[in-house]
């Protein structure tokens, strides 16, 4: 039943966070690779169970119910995720923000099943990262006023990938690619005999990113669309205007060692329509402008190959 000793390839998948996560693992023994892949998928389902806004028994729902009354203790991984959200928020000039859940309700991006009351208007909504207080010593999160509600969005996918990659590395896996819904990707090592995992940013002539121990997140203002007064609005909200972003770019991709930072910056770039001024050089960005031109910036621009060079191992879709 086992594949040849040197070229076992195992694929595993899990339904989580409203999308499909998948991992490809390369190595020697398919039974142990499968065990590692399943453990990674369990980690992803755990992240879904902890960070889902739509599950009443998630840790996130517990935080949203409780943190305005008293500080809520969280595990270190959750704390690190929230701290990363703070960091990207600051570096991106507020263009990435996980406190937008009340605005999502104002703009009807979520269905009516959420239990929190809908704010009367965008101006009144309890929104802003300054309303969230993190205590590193006690490992707690607290909201400074009632009505605050966290919606992790893509950050939850990033957290799932952090956990999955940690499990795979701990299991001794040296070559794997994990993605969630094709828009969030993390790579361990490279496929056998290759320099990295090649991921194409879309189809046809789109650039190819070579990932080796790197993560990628792709965001686009398309995806879920709402119509309002005849205007079609994307599902990403600009925290600065408290309204759906109306930028002119078609796609933004962030490449970073941290899946969490990649998620934060890709979202921020769609909001800003550009690479944030404060983005650290180690974050490499690819932006597809309304003019159809790709703009690559950052210290590792060499990871992005021009259109049509080499067959990709994987294609992303422009979905958040």
């Amino acid at each position: 039943m086992l594949a040849r000793a040197e070229d076992a390839v195992v694929r595993v998948a899990a339904a989580a966070m409203g999308t499909r996560f998948e991992a490809v693992l390369c190595g020697r023994d398919s039974a142990s690779l499968r065990a590692a892949g399943e453990a990674a998928m369990e980690e992803i389902r755990d992240a879904d169970a902890r960070y889902s806004l739509f599950r009443r028994d998630s840790l996130l729902s517990h935080i949203n119910r409780t943190a305005a009354e008293r500080p809520v203790r969280v595990d270190r991984e959750t704390f690190a995720m929230l701290a990363c959200a703070m960091e990207v928020n600051a570096l991106a000039g507020g263009a990435f923000d996980i406190t937008l859940a009340p605005l999502m309700r104002v703009w009807k991006f979520h269905d009516g099943s959420s239990s929190a009351a809908e704010p009367a208007s965008a101006e009144e909504a309890a929104v802003g990262m300054d309303l969230v207080e993190l205590d590193e010593v006690e490992c707690t999160v607290r909201f400074k006023r009632p009505g605050v509600s966290l919606d992790l969005g893509g950050l939850a996918k990033g957290a799932a990938l952090v956990g999955a990659a940690a499990v795979l590395r701990q299991a001794g896996v040296t070559s794997a690619l994990v993605h969630g819904g094709t828009s969030s990707v993390t790579a361990i090592g490279a496929p056998p005999g290759r320099d990295g995992w090649r991921v194409q940013l879309g189809r046809d002539a789109a650039p190819v990113v070579v990932l080796r121990d790197m993560s990628l997140s792709v965001s686009a203002p398309s995806g879920r669309i709402v119509e309002r007064n005849g205007e079609r609005l994307g599902h990403i909200i600009d925290p600065r205007t408290r309204a759906p972003a109306t930028c002119g770019i078609a796609m933004a991709a962030a490449i970073d060692e941290s899946p969490l930072r990649a998620e934060g910056f890709s979202t921020a770039m769609v909001v800003l329509g550009a690479r944030p001024m404060g983005a650290p050089p180690e974050m490499t960005s690819v932006i597809l402008g309304g003019d159809g031109e790709y703009r690559v910036e950052g210290a590792r621009a060499d990871l992005v190959l021009g259109a049509g060079r080499g067959r990709p191992d994987h294609e992303t879709e422009h979905m958040n």
Partner: peptide, 9 residues
């Protein structure tokens, strides 16, 4: 759907 096997380094 699970192998019930845990990864061992």
């Amino acid at each position: 759907k699970s192998s019930w096997r845990v990864p061992v380094s």
